[in-house]
Amino acid sequence: MIQRVQTIFLFLIVVAMGVALSNPLWEKTGANLSGLAQLTALEYSQQQAIPQQAGVPPTTSPTTVITSVWYLGLLLALVGLSSLYAIFQYRNRLTQTALCAVNALMLTAIMGIILYRTLYAGKAYGNVDDQGNFLIGFYAIIAALVCNALANRFIRRDEKLVRGSERLR
């Protein structure tokens, strides 16, 4: 039935993926506080100050370098869609368990990509000792990991309960 507790957790995963897709995941200010590096679900952008040359009037706008990370957005969308599909597979708990396992793998890959982008690629930007700030999108992914583990636990508990009651018949 749809009103089981794992449905709530699966729905919370869908909501968390929507939050992660629509909000920035990480940001870091530059060394001179005028630049900003930011990671969203679809792009990694960083502002670079234009070096000033002697005799040339200063420019007011820094250049922005944008690197596409579409695969991160794709993985986030796939996790949300598979969780939404798992909600309606309430009659087949083994399928729900398998979808939760796939979600766990995709969420682990997402966390790996984010940590690589922020801790290694983002380290070169601005102050090397500053790691930057993780924002609400990143914490939504962590919440999705927790909700996925809880949903999987309650699905297994239901399956165990059903198998136990079939044994009594």
Rank of each mutant, 00 (worst) to 15 (best):
M1I: 13
V5G: 05
Q6S: 12
I8P: 10
F9H: 07
F9L: 05
F9T: 04
L10S: 08
F11T: 11
I13A: 08
V14A: 06
V14D: 09
V14Y: 06
V14N: 02
A20S: 14
L21C: 11
P24A: 03
L25P: 09
W26V: 04
K28Q: 01
K28N: 01
K28M: 00
T29C: 08
G30M: 00
N32I: 09
G35H: 04
G35S: 15
L36G: 02
Q38W: 03
L39I: 04
L39G: 02
A41N: 01
L42D: 15
E43M: 03
E43K: 00
Y44D: 00
S45V: 04
Q46V: 05
Q46H: 00
Q47C: 03
Q48W: 06
A49D: 15
I50Y: 01
P51H: 02
Q52N: 05
G55C: 05
P57H: 07
T59P: 14
T59A: 12
S61L: 09
V65P: 02
I66R: 00
I66H: 00
S68P: 08
L72I: 01
G73T: 07
G73N: 06
G73P: 13
L74P: 06
L74W: 07
L75V: 06
L75C: 12
L76H: 02
L76A: 09
A77K: 01
A77L: 12
L78V: 12
L78H: 02
V79N: 03
L81H: 03
L81V: 13
Y85F: 13
A86W: 03
Y90G: 02
Y90M: 01
R91H: 14
N92E: 15
T95D: 15
Q96N: 08
Q96E: 10
T97M: 15
T97V: 15
T97W: 14
A98H: 14
C100H: 06
A101E: 12
V102E: 12
V102M: 11
A104N: 13
L107P: 06
I110H: 00
I110C: 09
G112E: 08
G112H: 04
I113Y: 04
I114V: 14
L115N: 10
Y116T: 06
Y116H: 08
R117L: 10
T118N: 01
Y120E: 11
Y120Q: 05
K123M: 05
A124I: 07
N127D: 15
V128N: 00
D129E: 15
D130H: 11
Q131I: 09
Q131D: 09
G132D: 04
N133L: 10
F134D: 01
L135T: 04
I136A: 15
I136V: 14
Y139H: 07
A140Y: 11
A144G: 10
L145V: 11
V146C: 10
N148Q: 08
L150I: 06
A151G: 06
N152H: 08
R153Q: 08
F154T: 07
R156V: 08
R157K: 05
D158I: 02
E159C: 00
L161R: 00
L161C: 04
V162K: 03
V162N: 11
V162A: 13
G164R: 02
G164N: 07
S165L: 12
R167Q: 11
L168W: 10
